[in-house]
Design a binder for these strands. Structure first.
Lengths: 200, 200
DNA sequence: CTCCTAACGATACCTTCAGTATCGTTTCTA
DNA sequence: TAGAAACGATACTGAAGGTATCGTTAGGAG
């Protein structure tokens, strides 16, 4: 007893995702209407709403499906070097047009609890978990102090990146990334900080 | 040659500001309608639009006029101690119901260029200027390195606070604030860091 | 091969909400 | 005291997210 009736069109599904990603990335979540997305995908509006419950879920999905792998974690000689490259990657990602998509979703999530949960569970936390592993490896290889609070450390690392993405007039350029990294090492690296006074 | 016609009602002006602040703080920018604000203020909707060009400008004004002074800079024995207290104050402000107002405005600013400029020019930058002065004083008193980039340092300090306000599942509690402060001192304080390697 | 069912595109519609237009009334100033 | 502008009230406009419904189409089950 398989499925009954006409199967859903994968072509329509993909076309909607691609149109949503392209339009929202270029012009922002609020500036793009669902009619426009459906039209750009060459699809009826009802088809869109058969595949996703609302606009926010669609755009969230377009982020995950189409560019979820763009922030893959680099392999480097050492864990601490992987961390450095990961920060660079994240900054480059925010500088790219994809940054507008993240800005849009974070903004929308402030008044959409469901989207907020989805963004945290499906985007933020998986990437934080990747960073956690890098940090654990960096601790294991002796590059970082053993007593750091990993989640708080991640907040420090990525907080300033998101701050500049959402509120900054300045750019997320290389000197800034370098400053973040050096500052992080100063506080958490074994070569820079003493073993007391960070966590009294 | 003074003004002609009936003067504007200061009572109406204040009542609208207070109603907007109260409602948006409690339920968020998007969840509160202009009609509701006007009704709560005991005022016609047109009066509201005679005093402000749009909803965003009104709410931005309510932030500045009614709670613009709540983040006043503390006086402490030393500049570095003032800095510490200022971070505490900012975190407490974000934890309070006022935090919802900031979240709403930052979110709305992502799709409203005019609001984004107003928020930067009238809220963010004045407060950053206050922090700049504290940092300069801390440098002068010998608590911080002389070669730090003050604006980048501010981004690091406040970035993680805004990150937890907008995206965090965790709270902006005292241990987190302490961590931020200690981490900042580790990177920028003269007692913690050596004089090279931060800015190669 | 044929039928049944659900998806399809199209389109009209509903609801909500920010912002506008208008009206008779009120309040201050010249 | 007369005029000009703000006032409260209310009807309206336009845009946008989401729904309802139409006839049509594709494909699996029998």
């Amino acid at each position: 007893m398989g499925t009954i009736g006409r199967p859903r069109s994968q072509e329509a599904h993909d076309a909607i995702l691609k149109a949503a990603l392209r339009l929202v990335t270029k012009r922002g979540f609020r500036a793009v209407g669902v009619n426009e997305i459906a039209a750009a995908a060459g699809v009826g509006k009802m088809t869109l709403y058969r595949h996703w419950p609302n606009k926010a879920a669609l755009v969230m999905d377009s982020l995950l499906v189409l560019i979820g792998s763009e922030t893959a974690f680099p392999e480097a000689g050492s864990a601490i070097e992987s961390l450095r490259q990961q920060i660079d990657l994240q900054a480059a990602f925010f500088r790219s047009p994809r940054g507008n998509l993240i800005r849009s979703l974070v903004a929308e999530a402030q008044s959409d609890l469901e989207l907020a949960c989805a963004f945290r569970d499906r985007w933020l936390n998986p990437r934080r978990e990747g960073v956690r592993e890098i940090l654990r490896a960096a601790i294991a290889e002796g590059s970082l102090r053993r007593d750091i609070d990993i989640d708080t450390a991640i907040d420090l690392l990525y907080g300033s990146l998101y701050y500049r993405l959402l509120l900054g007039s300045d750019t997320l350029d290389e000197p800034f990334v370098d400053h973040i990294y050096q500052q992080f090492l100063a506080g958490h690296g074994v070569l820079y900080a003493s073993d007391e006074e960070i966590r009294p």
